[in-house]
Design a protein around this nucleic acid. Sequence first.
RNA 1: GCGCCUGUAGCUCAGUGGUAGAGCAUCCGACUUUUAAUCGGAUGGCCGUUGGUUCAAUUCCAACCAGGCGCACCA
Length: 545
Amino acid sequence: MASAKNSKLAKSATTEVTERKLATEGTELVIIFRVSPFFRGVLRGSVFPRGIVFMSSQDEQLQQRQSNLAELGNLGIEIYPRRFDRRHTISQLVDAYGLRSHDELEAEKIETVTSGRILTIRSFGKANFLVLSDGRAKVQVYLRQDSLPPLDFQIFKLLDFGDWVGVEGHLFRTKTNEFTIWASRLHFLAKCLLPLPEKWHGLTDVEIRYRQRYLDLSVNPDSRRVFETRSRIVSAIREFMTARGYLEVETPMMQPIAGGAIARPFVTHHNALDMDLYLRVAPELYLKRLTIGGLEKVFEINRNFRNEGISTQHNPEFTMMEFYEAYADYHSLMAMTEEMIGAVARQAIGTDEVTFGDHQISLKAPYRRRSLRHAVAEEASERLGRQVDEKDLRDYWTVVKLARDLALPNYIPPAPGTGGAGRITMDLLERLCEGQLIEPTFVYDFPTEVSPLSKQKPDDPETVERFELYIGGFEVANAFSELNDPAEQRRRFEEQLKERARGDLEAHQMDEDYIRWTRITSERSSTACRRRPARDSASIVSSCC
RNA sequence: GCGCCUGUAGCUCAGUGGUAGAGCAUCCGACUUUUAAUCGGAUGGCCGUUGGUUCAAUUCCAACCAGGCGCACCA
């Protein structure tokens, strides 16, 4: 509350201050200043002590709602009630009785006690309608002055859009056939002090929807469905893995070396140890250590952090599932992955036929399989109208020429010495093919150059046993047979170090500990597969969280 | 990092070289079955910030700030 002293200061500071008095409850007086530009600048510069009340229109709405709350208190009711026992949720009411006819409801006179947030108030003096929502379903409430205790009707008159209330009454249908609760009691549960987004346009600003989830959840039922679907997907993946003997583990998120993926990390600092640590870009190397130690099948569902671009497709902190299995190779992984995705879809949304954008996609196994070089050569041949051979993709200068012929917008191939044929082939996959891989497709056999932790094919050292799964034009999984030759692993890390030295901040760092463990286990074999439930699976069925 | 776009009432948006308008929201009044209820009245704006041109700028120009989109990076 503004003190008299502050008022004086304000007046002497500007000639344009106008005052308006707004009586609130009791004896308090709020002074609202409508201020000149100069005065506002003074406010910002904190010349005045705190306590000056500057009111915008939104503040006035807050004031109004606070005043209504105070009035409710004056009625002698508890304005922050502790408990409300419902007989039904609104969803339960709608599910159980929402299709009953007018006559059925009249005959049954079903009594209910329920609660929800007020979405609309339509007032006709002595007859009034509320629409309440529990976030999933809505129901209309009919409040007649002569059907309610006088106190409850007074409560009604102090309600605002967004408040939470409890209602007792029986179910019926109005003249216009709307499923409605005829209220015999109205209970105040909680005040909404700030106005919710307006009802007609609703909350459509994507920016606000993501930054203020509570608002989105309050007014957009689809927002809740995304959360529910995501939760079911994660549960289904967990059940699928556990049922097959995989052990769920959690490995370090703060790592001295951010390894396991080609990505730029976030840096943080541990005070007691006085050392910088990286937020992990992948759990890979730690999961692999567990496999090496003898846990033959492990998985982890958790966050990873990548210090890169942000968009609807890229979240700096995203969830992914990663699993490792001894004695298996990447062919076993393809079979398991296609089985898992179909099973998870059936369990989470009840079908493995999904609509994604303009496409109908079947998630039922088996999925299409294409080697990477085959996929690129095929697409390039089609675009250029001439035969491109897979072996053209193994020579730097040939593939550079190919990339130039394709005239890809904004694409500059890496200069000699900063990336070879393998790197460019990967780029071509992403730019030529990725968006067209709508039907679930395994793209397999990757260039060794871009896969520092994968095992080479027995007859082809330029190629590793690795695949990526694409669905709906997005990469949803990446997997490979693990490299377990310590000498070769050291050579690969050294290659990565050279790339770092050339300025590639994403190239892998040397991880001596990892090599040491590889030595211990050089007679074993393991396999990694990754997929990302948070973004990709959710995006198959709806959108991301 | 580069390019494009936007900034006017709480929200969604009109508009003009002579300091502003609508609908919704809010407040007051009427109304005992409404569906964005309706009707009558009222409140609410440094027209993003700073500077320039001008007798006069919310409007024209410039810079800046904030936000968005696209590209690049990336999953």
